[in-house]
Structure formats: C-alpha cells, structure tokens
Design a protein around this nucleic acid. Sequence first.
DNA 1: GTTAGCACTCACCGTAATCGAGTGCTAATC
DNA 2: GATTAGCACTCGATTACGGTGAGTGCTAAC
Lengths: 354, 354
Amino acid sequence: MELDERKITILKAIIRSYMETGEPVGSRTLSKLPNLQVSSATIRNEMSDLEEMGYIVQPHTSAGRVPTDKGYRFYVDEIMKEKDIELKEKDSQLTEYKELMDKRVDRLEYVLKHVAKLLAANTNYATMISGPSSRRNKIKFVQLSRMEKNRILVATVFEGNIINNRIIAISEDISEKEIGELNMLLNTSLTGLTMNEINLATIMKLRSDAGDYSDVIDQVLTEISEAFTNNEEEELEVYTSGATNIFKYPELTGGDAAGMLIEQFEKKDELRQMLGEINEGYAADAENAGIRVYIGEELPMHDMSDCSLVTANYDFGSGISGTIGIVGPKRMDYDKVLGTLKSVMKQLEDTFRI
Amino acid sequence: MELDERKITILKAIIRSYMETGEPVGSRTLSKLPNLQVSSATIRNEMSDLEEMGYIVQPHTSAGRVPTDKGYRFYVDEIMKEKDIELKEKDSQLTEYKELMDKRVDRLEYVLKHVAKLLAANTNYATMISGPSSRRNKIKFVQLSRMEKNRILVATVFEGNIINNRIIAISEDISEKEIGELNMLLNTSLTGLTMNEINLATIMKLRSDAGDYSDVIDQVLTEISEAFTNNEEEELEVYTSGATNIFKYPELTGGDAAGMLIEQFEKKDELRQMLGEINEGYAADAENAGIRVYIGEELPMHDMSDCSLVTANYDFGSGISGTIGIVGPKRMDYDKVLGTLKSVMKQLEDTFRI
DNA sequence: GTTAGCACTCACCGTAATCGAGTGCTAATC
DNA sequence: GATTAGCACTCGATTACGGTGAGTGCTAAC
C-alpha cells in the first residue's frame, strides 16, 4: 500500500493533534478539520490503513489512534526535508541568546551552562549540553607562578580559552628568574601540542633542558596530563536544565516513570557518555552534520524509550566539540525544537568558531 | 500533664516505627514491642494523652498515630542531648570520606561536590552544599601572564586556594618585563586584602605607580572585583546530589508534590540563598555552632514544609565558610544523619582549616 | 469511492457494599 | 488507682457494578 496525499494529511493531522493534547485522536475530531472535508467514516477507513502500515496504533480497542515511532519518524523526516527552516532574524529569543554570548566570549563553560537554561525555558523540555571535549585540544599557553615559598600555580590554557589550574608543591628552592626560564621552556616546547603529541622525545628534551629542575618539569607534566584527561573524565561537565519539565507531560510521569527519568538526569556520567558517543558519530560522518532526532527505541539510552531526543553538534575547530540534546516526550513539538536548536547552533558557531 | 518515662518510651517507639514504615502506627503494633509489656488498651490511653499534648496526631479518626513536628522536635532534641555521638573510628564510610579529602587538598570545589554525592549515597536523602563564600576572603596572589599578542590572563588566587581566571584584551603593546613589574606591583598592593579593603587610596596608588599602564590596572581591578562578586552571585555553586532519593518516600511524592520538590532542587539560586542565610545565622551566633535540625514548618523554605533539613556549617577561617544541608522526609533517620554529618564535618575541618 | 447508520467495545466515572485496622469507652480485674 | 478485656463504632481502602460516551468496524445505500 502507498502513502497517498490524503493519508499523509491525515497522519500529520493525527500527530499534530496528539502533540497538542496528548490524547488519542478519533475520526470525528479529524473530520472537523478544515483541510479534511470528508466524513468520519472515510477517515476511519484511512486510519485503518495507516494502522495496518504501522504508522499509528490504538492503545486499546475503541480508543482513538496514537502515532507510533514509525509515525513520528515519518513526520520528523518530513519536517527535516523542508530544507532550512527560515531563521527569523527578528526573533526575540535569538537576540536573547546573542546577548548572552556576546557577554563573555572567553567563558565557553559559562555560556553553555546558560544556553542549557535558556533552551529548557524556551522549549519546556529538558536539555543537556556536554562541555567541550579536549583530548584532541591544543595547548595554547602554560604559565607557572610562584604562589608561596614552595607552591607553584600551574595555569594551562587550551584552544578555546579553556583554562585549567593546578597547584603543585615543590621541594627545591627556585628563584623567580628560574621560574621565568621554565615558563619560556615549557611554552616553546608545548604550545600547539595535543595530549597525544607530547611524546617521550619532547619530555626528554624538556627534562634535560630544565637541568636541576627536571623533577619540577615532571610534576608540571603530570598536572598537564591530568588537566587533559580530567577534563575528559571528571570535569568534563554535562550541563542539564529543566529536568522537571517532564512533569508537564503526563504520559511520562505515569507510575514511577517520573522518578526513573529524573534519575537518568542525575546520572551525569551516563549522559556524558551518551552525548560523547553521539558526538563521535557526528565526527565520523561529517556530511550528516546538523540536527538529529532519535525517537523512542532509537534512543541510545534504553531507559528513556518513551522519549525523543533531538541533538545538535557544535564543533569550533581544534577538537573543541560537543553535543546539545533536548529530551521531551515523543509528541514533542519537533518543529519548534528544530528551529530553536538551529538558530542557537548558528549563533554559537558564529561566536566561537576559531 | 507531664511526659513520664512510659510516655517517652511510647513516643520514641511511635517515631521509630513511623520512620521505618511511613505508616501510621497503632496501639496493637506497639504492644508487641519487647520493651513495652502492657496491653494495647493501656497504650491507647497513653497515646490519647500524647495526642492531647500535641506530640502525635491521627491523620483521620480510626487511623494510627503519626508524630507531629513537635514530636519530631522532642525526639531530635533528645538525640542531640546524648552529647557527642561517638565517632566510630573504624567506620568504613569515614575512611571513604578521608580518602576523598586526602586526594586533592587543593581543590575544595572538587571535594565539596563529591562530599555531596557521598552523603546522598550513604544517607539516601538529598544533599546540598554551598560552595565557599568569598566576599570576605583575602587575595593571596595575583598573576598576569601574556597569552597572545594583546591578551592577558589574569589569575587570582584567594585564601583557600580558590582560583579565578579572566582574560583581558589590551590595546597597548606591553613587554614581558613590564608585565613582570605590574605583577610585582599588584601583589605588593593587593595581597592579603579583601574586597572591601581595596579602597580608593589603594587604587589611586596602583594607578599612579603603573604609569603608562594605568588602564591595564583598571581592567585588572575590574576583573578582580568581578572575581569577588561573581564568586558570590554566579559561580558560587550549590552542589546538589541525590534529589531523586525523595522518590523513595511515598509521603513526599503524593500527587504532584514530587515535581514541586525536585523543582526546588533545580532552583539553585534559592537554595544558595537559603544556605547563605543559614550560614549567616551560624556566623552571628558562634557558640551555637554544630548541627541544626529544621523540622517541617521550621524550614526556611516554605515549599518544603513536608521535609526536614539537617544543616552543618563549615568554616575554615579567612571567611571561607559554607553550609551543608541534608533534606529528607520528616521521618528521616536523624540518628544516622547526625552521626554521618558530624564525622564528615570533622574530617573536612581537619583537612581544610587554615 | 464515499457516506450514513448501527451494533459493539471498553476505559472511565460515580455509587454502593464490604473489609479491617484502629479507636474510645465501659466494666471487670489486679 | 492502674490495667486489661471486650465491644461498638469510625472511616479509609478495596472491590464490585452499572451507566456513559467516545470511538471503532462493518454493512448497505448513495
């Protein structure tokens, strides 16, 4: 059987109606729509066909129809096909984001956190953003400064102005002048390198150049390496916001489902991993960049199969990339979410791309 | 009427039983307890008295009794009276905390975040910790470093090794040597000062000493001032953990109450303010340090009047202080919470007190 | 191919009946 | 006077049940 014009109209109408109300939609309701000038009986026949084809389903006999994952998938693909969703330049929310970003270009972290909040507030869904992955990121600048007699502050700045501080304790007495020399040494050796590019040869050269202070160099390198990996595993935050929005959608909060979902949102580790995998996916398949939609069972996280997830990837070059995700009920307003996400991504990339 | 021995035994038994089950407790249940060798009728009489005195209440006629806020208050005071709850040195959880703290003395933030997590996991309640307030904190060290041609990294370290970084853009060309001089100047002028102590005289002196670079000084001071206040308003985090634990207590999740509560936990602003006020309270009344318990209506946050809050204050000197709070149902296991909190506080203070 | 009509299904709602844990009271007992 | 046994009573929780209505599928007429 084919999806003819009328079937498509009906399917879309069902989905849209279900999006609004969250209630199964019946044939009579549809027959009253202006763009469907046929009787309810006709619609019933069409619905029967749609059900057979797997786009919709009845929760129980004698109830209206509800879209299946396949139905949503069709709808989303249809939306995505409508090429570039026009970016309304005057959109108030867009300027809202823009202001936020102009404010503090040097604090990506800060901006991401607030973007999560704004997205949650604007869409009424839950949002999550993974902070920039930096394992492939380059060192821009290293600075040792003596804080106290035998404590040194190691500040490492990565591309994208991601700053990491460590404090190390040293045993030797070291003069300001020598610290200056070590700084010079470190910067000439390390600037522009990624974690993987700091190899044994580099390290050996550094140590021999440092002379008496080779063990200070060791400590500094340890801290820098931790700065790399720790970013990855510990401090690579996932910013979430609006998790409580799910309480607005009764179909997600039946029974103890609400608890389960909110709990998912507290498991930052798993979220981070999930977003990380999605991010990898984007990297592997560059042409398919942009926005992706995962519906129900398609979700990488099994416990959330009653939800949909819309993701977008940011990549500012130099290995600074991450993922934004918006989670809502399957009947989320894909149109709005896709539009909002698109404009936010544009804004982010314009501001931060190196 | 007086609270005689037997009434106290019964009251405690009611509270303990209610803590375990969350169900109203009846006279027959109590009569079966080993330390109450009287008939249910006798207990009924006593319960009637206790109700009259306001320690317990019936949710409805013909139901068992449930402790009132006053009842809990009595119970908690009773526990607190049992002076120092013995710190079991060999307690596995204590070593767990200790390991955590030894690991990274220089990252208070990191430790606090993980303490929140551990507390939530160990107690099964929700925890929140306010990061150290620093408005009254002293500058320990300031360091300018040139990152790029006209970008300077301003690293400010406060007492307690709280590090704050800013990046400023400068128009003038400035040599390494001159940056070194500015560093010297800034450190001699600012080290040891709090926000309020940086007055006009200090600023004027700095500017005149800086000569041609007085506007760099201006920028640096702006950033430092923001570092102070921003710590206070933006980045002064509240770390929460285990919010979903509340789903384990049905009496908190009836209706949409669960949503409300979880929402409270997402409002970091309000939590921070609440913890801040509590912290102020501790400061104002030093002798009453230690642990406090807020029951039901006593809570500073009105929407949480079905809960209890146990708080403890940490103060490491130099104005670095904050508050830890544990939120649970009124029938929370006060004994355990008080003990756990006490040992954690001790550990924290031992490790961090300056 | 479309529509009107009709019998049928089934979640939902409100009411009634039942059940049982728990109380308060009274009278007997220690 | 304190304690206890016994009993009537209360009231939330659970189950049972009939009515209602939205919605379907099918058939026959248009």
